[in-house]
Design a protein around this nucleic acid. Structure first.
Lengths: 199, 199
DNA sequence: AAGGCCATGTAAGTAGTTACATGATTGA
DNA sequence: TCAATCATGTAACTACTTACATGGCCTT
């Protein structure tokens, strides 16, 4: 089944991380550490990755001839910049049009609420407050980016897409802030206290 | 470090799946397959799991003396019902109050939009339509459940929590439907076509 | 006794996380 | 020359997924 060094083709499948890296490298050729940092403040908002994941994936992408390193023999401790090869761009183009069903929600906080309905809500309120704070902080960051990058009118087609992505983030954070605020009101409401300790 | 059969204590850590199972078992003692089915239409909306995961986790929870099987020696093919032990309830109670930062968004569709800003948006529109359809279907399911389970007034404290969880689902699906509708309008808008094929 | 379904499980692989190791460069 | 920081990497582990295997029970 064609494995090992020198194999070609669709190793990447529908995986998101390699395609996130291809996107970032097309925007600007970079080293692993640079990618890690750009993930932390841009693409990583929607698909986070640690430097370990990124280095591993860069290795696989290079093996698959989708990217290649610019002028530098591989050595530990020395910077290595990568750029995307035509095959890499083709792979990314194909992936954009590929179908993938939306993943169901996976949220531990909602699970905690569900559990609290059974064993009591002790200790949950501070947790909701922490989440509210975190989402407010994230929303503020998104809004700062929006003002900085998309404040001016008349954006090109590509910028419009990037703006749509950012607006998804803004919308999601806004939703959570509203929901958490409403939930905390429920928790603190005078008659909510009546059911505070079931079981 | 205390491993192997008979170990006790906090093997579960902050993991969500074992606590989701404890919650479901407290609501009603069940076998693995019954749990799997209940996950498919209730808790699984917010933390999905396959039957393989569930059976494995039931084994670990039993080993850790957090649950135990009702009357039946272990055998393949025979039904085995579990119920939660006091230690299991205590574990779940502790977990409800435990702190865990919200996980950043992980969404492949947003990544695809980001990639489309670089390599062109070919093939993305049908994908957005598919997602829109899926989210509409999920919203309809949530609304049906809401009407069925929370239609009447004067809910108890526990039901209010369950309703909050469901409303989170409703809010999220509603958000995605709005965002996708807006994005599709962008895609189809007359001047959006101008930037359809960058690169 | 055959087929279908209920029920539990094994095996192998993928994706992501956490902790740690090591080399190169720079500035005090 | 020492410490800090930049930069790349290894190792081990956890969580989840996919495909498949097996036993028991019920119906015809």
């Amino acid at each position: 089944m064609c494995v090992g060094a020198g194999f070609r083709g669709r190793y990447v499948g529908t995986m998101s991380l390699p395609h996130a890296i291809l996107t970032a490298l097309l925007e600007k050729p970079s080293s692993g550490l640079e990618l890690t940092r750009r993930f932390d403040r841009s693409i990583g908002f929607f698909w986070s990755a640690t430097h370990q994941q990124i280095y591993r994936e860069l290795g696989k992408l290079e093996q698959a001839d989708l990217i290649h390193a610019l002028a530098q023999s591989p050595s530990r401790g020395r910077k290595r910049e990568y750029e995307v090869l035509p095959a890499g761009r083709a792979e990314l183009t194909a992936w954009v049009g590929a179908g993938q069903d939306p993943k169901p929600i996976r949220d531990a906080l909602l699970l905690r609420l569900r559990a609290a309905a059974v064993v009591g809500r002790d200790g949950l309120e501070p947790e909701l407050e922490r989440h509210l704070l975190a989402h407010r902080r994230q929303l503020a960051e998104y809004l700062t980016i929006e003002e900085r990058d998309f404040g001016a009118a008349d954006l090109g087609g590509e910028d419009r897409l990037r703006h749509l992505v950012l607006r998804a983030g803004i919308g999601l954070e806004t939703f959570w802030i509203e929901w958490l605020t409403e939930s905390l009101a429920e928790f603190r409401g005078p008659d909510a206290a009546a059911g505070a300790h079931p079981g």
